[in-house]
Design a binder for these strands. Structure first.
Lengths: 166, 166
DNA sequence: GTTATTGCAAATGATTTGCACAAGG
DNA sequence: CCTTGTGCAAATCATTTGCAATAAC
């Protein structure tokens, strides 16, 4: 985990007159021990799996806090629940491609894209604050080879596939 | 309302062995009598305001049907509920800019953007099925003039402003 | 000590669903 | 008729919240 994260959080907490707690520390530890997206529920499970016993309510409250501190972002993957993305610190302008075959989420960046978005926005008389591009796509490998390693992995892991609403 | 809509729906309904009902007709009429986005609840209210008395359950079921028939799209505007967009028939590739000041939603299209998205997607080994770009932006007019007609309108109409979660 | 934080359980809000009845083809 | 569609009310699911107990600072 990037050392700067703890620091940013501490600064934010101090500025707001809030308090450092064991629960918040544990939650931040778990979140940034990986670069995976997660739902509140998945995070809650990960916490139980380790020694932490924060309640669901605390998980939700802490997530709101981390969003406000800009340490994580909410993203919409198209299923019913909010997904959180811890990778915006390292890649502030990344976008998401969701494979409709297996649900795999690919993060990508493109400067041309950012530039073009900004042009379009200005032309409309606005100034962009944030953008989120989600591309739903099919896997070429699956089309060509009739199979795709990610699909197999997804089935094994029992991942929630897109557009299936659980 | 575009005459083609009814036709498309009829074709879809026939192909699926479903039935034409008064409720479905009324719902489609109301939706396509305007190009405005709507939530299920707003649609329900519009229906009550006219002579139709479809139940909420029927509204939800019909919306799912219309999405499946590709007559409307679900879009995410950042508040807690699903918003539906009836304008994809006329503008299949349009995107949304949401003003963070007043909540106004501007639809726009850009061929360069579509082309670039497609390039990026192919480079990643996928084929795009659909994309949704949402840009959150501030109004230049508000910044420069200290005011913006849309903001005033939004306040009068009591629109749900973005990120306020109701 | 004072004030923020937590956990619990109850509340909320959007959406879905089971079922008996109504209605399309 | 036979099957799909509807309305109702209850169920579900994610998320939020009131409150009393707990823990920062």
């Amino acid at each position: 985990m990037d050392a700067g994260i703890r620091e940013r959080l501490d600064t934010f907490i101090q500025k707001k007159g809030l308090r450092q707690t064991a629960q918040r520390d544990e939650i931040v530890d778990i979140i940034f021990s990986s670069d995976e997206h997660f739902t509140p529920d998945e995070l809650f499970d990960r916490l139980r799996a380790s020694r932490s016993k924060s309640s669901r309510a605390t998980v939700y409250r802490t997530l709101a806090l981390l969003v406000e501190a800009d340490l994580i972002h909410e993203i919409e993957l198209g299923d019913g629940q909010t997904t959180y993305d811890p990778n915006f610190l390292d890649h502030p302008n990344h976008n998401h491609l969701v494979c409709v075959d297996c649900g795999k989420v690919v993060e990508f960046e493109d400067n041309h894209l950012d530039l073009l978005n900004d042009c379009v926005t200005r032309r409309l008389g606005y100034r962009a604050v944030r953008q989120s591009l989600r591309i739903e796509a099919t896997c070429e490998r699956l089309r060509n080879d009739g199979n795709c390693p990610d699909l197999i992995q997804a089935r094994i892991k029992g991942k929630r596939l897109p557009n299936l609403k659980k």
